[in-house]
Amino acid sequence: MRTLLPTGHNALLVECFDLEDVMALHCALTSSRPHGVVDLVPAARTLLVTFDDTTTRAEVARAVTGVEFGAPVVAAAPAEVTIEVTYDGQDLDDIAELTGIPKDDVVRRHLGGDYVVAFTGFAPGFAYIAGGDPALVVPRRATPRTRVPAGSVALAGEFTGIYPHEGPGGWQVIGRTEAPLWDLRRESPALLTPGTRVRFTEGRAS
């Protein structure tokens, strides 16, 4: 069931069936963008569609409801990104304790996931990467850190996230990467965009 919630004069918030449906709807509307749509903001359960005055809410609603359930999730290029991670995060011990899984196993299970970027938000280039091992679901830290280094790979809820910039953060840090997550010189500054498949590999500590 998708529900369309009116959000002011220039937006509709679409409550989707689940995260998979959010991704499918986002993908379908991105590949054939309805006229007048300005932004598509996927999130955990919703897709926000903002539009300008060249279209109407009814037109946008029609476009949204025209997308069938179970539409395929196809990423814009690149389809798959490999991210090399050095698994030496300062929260590895806490993750092991929270999940009851030994540290080495935490890393092994994290490497084994079949990941896809669900949505972005929080900061430019910060991606919520879904599809990890359900045994690695951990809460955020009770007290967020005031400073998490750029490149930190971290877990919260069902997601893996990578901090593109240094800043405050409350996710459980499992490791670090030097992958260029945000680069304004690239045509697409964000390395990870919704729908991108992600593979984590273990890198050497440097």
């Binding site: 991105t30 932004d39 598509l40 903001v41 926000l48 972005t120 910060f126 919704p194």
Partner: peptide, 8 residues
């Protein structure tokens, strides 16, 4: 406008 899906 148009970059919200990148977190911008």
């Amino acid at each position: 406008p148009g970059f919200a899906h990148l977190g911008v």
